[in-house]
Design a protein around this nucleic acid. Structure first.
Lengths: 333, 333
DNA sequence: CTGAAAGCGCTAACAC
DNA sequence: GTGTTAGCGCTTTCAG
């Protein structure tokens, strides 16, 4: 069938151990021997069987990546960041989508353990005790990417969502004294919950009553269409907000278009601020002012952190917080 | 270290062969024995090591997927289609991006062979002899998804790109007698080449000279920004086209916004037709008339085809052509 | 219906 | 520097 290390050894008149040394770049091989082996490999078209290697060495050089959904620009950037760094460190990626379902998240996690991945990067919704139990049981490093866990033992890479919303509100208030509406993404996601809480806290601080506050919040499901619905909701209000702060860019496009479809002008009539800074933010008119969440970097840093953990490098801080910032474009005055 | 099949066997007082039978759903096990084994598995928290299993059975139940770029909506849909079906058939996905580089495409391919994937779904640019050689050398099924190969031996799932452009042109000509401009995606991709050829053929048939034709084509690099450039190019022409046919939706958004930024109205002044029908097509004003390329289905059908090949099912036709159609929205009159 | 035993292709001590 | 020899954890004949 296919050519093995043993065939190479025979052809090169050496032992399989020597062949193994050569393919693993072990230095203790005489140059002449090495060349002999290399020639035999070349001639036979030998390619090491990664499965056998994985079994023998207990390392697969693959890492599992669990994300909510591939078909999401925002998450794709994360994936790209992970992949670029993984390639750099010669790791392979086994990628699966959980569709935001908790049971699937956990199933996938165990499946990846069965595959003997060397580590896992996990992006999910809310981290439950069940998640934590699974993570602990795994004897491999797990990194949470753009995913909040209360537990301080878990390695993670995030931005400060609470502060990001505070900053966005401050930014908005510097430009306009009017009300701010808020469109949430689904609250089964901890980071969305935090954003909402941040908004609530800020509004209360400026003296809004619970009743007022409630009207200013629209709970969406994080799709373009629900962005459109959100815009309708706000337009139906007696006291319309002057600015709408939206939990994601895709949602924000929906809001903008929803407003425009009703004949309003953005930002003259109502300003809109997004969140994420995906490519979408510049693919709309007016271009979208948004809170940049560096997804590519979150992916890249997560993967880099994982490689450090995997290679036993010193890691000073397992919980990384990356900077965010407001990117001002034309959807605000 | 971790619990193995042997530990389970000992605990259940059976041989490891029996345990193996149980976990593989082999029927030849007495119910009572099966239960004993199941209990032991449960108690020990045993999870089979997929690597060892892969080595012993020479099957990994993983399939490799090579795509040009994760961070592309259009491709993400493909990935999603693949994934959904893979999950259904209990295959795992090893996903890698080639960044459209031929050497990387081939490297990834060989890497996946080393990982002993059971099959590979390949989406790439132009299939060269080198590709074909690699595909042949692999003793596993390979499916080309949304990727053209001249060779008839390769399994593939595509739409008829040539016809799709013909249809688009016919659609346009039914609405408007004016010139049609064409924005290509990079021509290092065979399917883009075909689309361009289709456009050229159609224009020649309607009597355009080579010189006229040349002016009507703008070669882009398939980004939003180059869509904007394309619009500037066409606006600079003495005889402006009445409709611009664009090779991808993202590009088309660029064209639309480029036109609008210059004060033109779409579709009144110039109409725009996209290609792909990604989610973007509805996330723009006016919404985009576009040629639907069913990427999700291409992914799903590719994966399904692969499972058939993998399970030795009868496959009547290895080259599948999926239907396309024009979706009319507001960017055309 | 169940067990024994021989690998799958490679790595990793341990010798020499 | 290089070879020998155990395994890694499982599947898969082959017996019985």
């Amino acid at each position: 069938m296919s050519v093995t290390i043993y065939d190479v050894a025979k052809k090169a008149n050496v032992s399989m151990a020597t062949v193994s040394r050569v393919i693993n770049g072990n230095t203790n091989v005489k140059p002449i021997t090495r060349q002999k082996v290399l020639d035999a490999i070349e001639e036979l078209g030998f390619r090491p069987n990664a499965v056998a290697r994985g079994l023998a060495s207990r390392k697969t050089t693959s890492v599992g990546v669990i994300i909510p959904d591939v078909a999401n620009l925002f998450i794709a950037d994360l994936a790209r960041g992970i992949e670029d760094i993984a390639t750099m460190y010669k790791y392979h990626i086994i990628l699966s989508s959980s569709d935001q379902q908790k049971t699937k998240e956990i199933d996938l996690f165990y499946n990846m353990l069965e595959k003997q991945v060397d580590g896992i990067i996990f992006m999910g919704t809310t981290i439950t005790d069940e998640h934590i139990e699974a993570f602990k049981k795994a004897n491999i490093p797990v990194i949470l990417a753009a995913t909040i866990a209360e537990s301080e033992e878990l390695a993670s890479v995030n931005i400060d969502y609470y502060q990001a919303i505070q900053d966005a509100i401050q930014f908005i208030e510097e430009k306009s004294k009017g009300d701010i509406g808020f469109v949430t993404s689904p609250l089964n996601n901890r980071s969305n919950e935090i954003r909402k809480q941040s908004f609530v806290d800020a509004m209360k601080k400026s003296g809004k009553s619970d009743a007022e506050l409630e009207k200013l919040i629209f709970n969406s499901d994080d799709t373009y269409d629900s962005g459109i619905q959100a815009s309708h909701y706000f337009l139906g209000l007696e006291e319309k907000p002057e600015t709408i702060l939206v939990s994601s860019d895709e949602l924000a496009l929906g809001v903008i278009h929803g407003l425009q479809d009703e004949g309003l002008k953005v930002p003259e009539d109502i300003a809109v601020v997004g969140f994420d800074n995906t490519r979408l933010a510049t693919m709309v008119r007016p271009t979208l002012t948004t809170v940049m969440q560096p997804m590519y970097d979150i992916g890249a840093v997560s993967m880099r952190l994982l490689t450090k953990l995997l290679q036993g490098e010193q890691v000073e801080e397992k919980q990384v917080t990356l900077p965010h910032r407001i990117i001002e474009r034309d959807s605000t005055k």
